[in-house]
Design a protein around this nucleic acid. Structure first.
Lengths: 293, 293
DNA sequence: ATGTCTTACGGAAGACGTAATAATA
DNA sequence: TATTATTACGTCTTCCGTAAGACAT
């Protein structure tokens, strides 16, 4: 049983689906079938119960996975560490975040650091008005974005958290009350994005029409979170943002107002499909582990 | 880097000699050279400093070995455990010992058990008069014998311990004194082996001639340790044995007498070269670790 | 000369893809 | 019929041995 076979076995043990396992490994699904079959003959036991509809680990398969998983991880990790050291390159994972989300990542990043001791983590700010640029240029490996994201070259991973949406406005603003509803946006100027963010993504956070059908007018066009703050502080525009911002970006003249009927916004990790690495996969796994609890 | 390459790398890292590593792996030494070279190109660093005279790990090589060693062990171990379970076979290692040696193996066997949790250990008695039979028949995997052992089909491992030789005799025997010398054997009947033990091995423990050249006569011919005890108790014959026997086989009418000028007898582990398994290699390693301390 | 590591070359094994087949919903 | 796992077969990589070469003792 070579490392390659172990990789195939462990991938199938995670995906429990020959097609998806094959896709993750960039091989044909026949190859996965052949490899698993060969190992089953070698070991002398069925590792997966499978019908053409469902794939499941047998008890022996479970035991084998539990034996192989940590060791396989240590080997790939060890080779990566030594290779990086030999070539003088540093192993790093760069995350792109917006606003307050970066402050709330302690759980998954802690796990990730623990399991990848030799890896440096870096954070960069992503502009809400142009959420994919840093990803596509390679400046960051992973972005944390609100859904939906439908881009052919990007993969959307597990949801990190789901947060309420709040309206951010100057205390002098006429709509500064304990709570508002989406309909109120029809009477406001809302800050718009000064960048190439796709419309479907923008309007999932800031709709173009109120529930009754009135248009929601865009006011200042901004590209960074700092610009949002100044635009709001100036008193003319309202901005919509995730609730965590209220905890981390308190500003003297600015109020955060709940929007009673706004849907939660879901934040997920996103990466370039073609640039997926082991580190990215590990980080995704860490996030998935955390959101399961 | 496949498992096979890791195995080659780790073997060379132990042996620090291409020829010996190749022999242990049953491949040509060219293959070892090719594999190491390929890994060095892949990783981008030299793993072994080598002249045609000495092979040594580089710092990077040391780090790689430390990363890979335990994980490789866990993988082979895990596959072996699962395979054994699947096939309903038990994993066991059977040791053949003589007399008191079995009682003094706590150290290495403890280590071995700890590192191979799923493996049963068994002990069988080996007849001194026919020390290789059980090994060659497959009844035992490893024998613990005194040196020298020069048999073409057997491999001699590290020395387990070196013990003084004592004379065992009836308390009524004329030579029962606080201490004797080899020359005294010329006046005794010494028990001889009733079996096919090679002469070179027998006489290394019980010489055929005294230092002055007088013959040492054989008395009773025995095959088991029990027969030795009864032959000695009967009062006619003297037996030579390792000192530990005095601690474990006290008998009312029997005395153990030091032989002042007898050389130490060295006890080593021996196995059939063709039947060498991972378990045997592990046990050898455990013994080697212990005798280094 | 002898012992040891490396390089060149060729054959065999096996990894993998394509395409056809079987089985299930 | 659509989806998914398995089997058959051909290609191509690579594993490995043999033999010759390079280097030191």
């Amino acid at each position: 049983m070579e490392l390659r076979d172990i990789e195939i076995f462990l991938t199938l043990a995670e995906e429990l689906h020959f097609g998806r396992a094959a896709a993750r490994l960039f091989v044909s699904q026949a190859r996965v079938s052949q490899s698993i079959k060969a190992q089953e003959r070698r070991i002398g036991a069925v590792l997966f119960e499978r019908t053409s509809r469902v794939v499941r680990l047998t008890p022996i398969g479970i035991e084998l996975r539990d034996q192989l998983q940590p060791a396989y991880r240590q080997i790939t990790e060890g080779i990566a560490v030594v290779t990086a050291k030999a070539q003088g390159t540093r192993r790093m994972l760069t995350l792109g975040t917006m606003g307050a989300i970066a402050q709330t990542l302690g759980g998954p990043t802690g796990d990730f650091r623990e399991r990848n001791p030799g890896v440096e983590m870096h954070f960069k700010e992503v502009h809400p008005a142009d959420p994919f640029a840093a990803l596509r240029s390679g400046d960051i490996d992973i972005a944390i974005l609100w859904l939906p994201v439908h881009e052919p070259d990007l993969t959307v991973g597990p949801i990190l958290r789901s947060t309420p949406v709040m309206a951010m406005m100057a205390r002098t603003h006429p709509r500064d009350r304990p709570s508002i509803v989406l309909e109120d946006l029809g009477d406001c100027l809302v800050v718009g994005p000064n960048g190439p963010i796709p419309r479907y993504m923008e309007e999932s956070l800031v709709p173009y029409f109120t529930p009754s059908g009135r248009p929601v007018s865009r006011g200042a066009l901004v590209s960074t979170f700092q610009e949002v703050l100044t635009a709001v502080a100036s008193g003319t525009s309202v901005a919509l943002t995730q609730a965590e911002a209220a905890d981390f970006y308190q500003w003297p003249g600015i109020a955060y107002v709940p929007i009673a009927d706004a849907p939660l916004s879901h934040w997920a990790i996103v990466w370039r499909t073609a640039a997926e690495t082991d580190l990215i996969r590990d980080f995704v796994a860490a996030v998935a582990d955390h959101s399961h609890r």
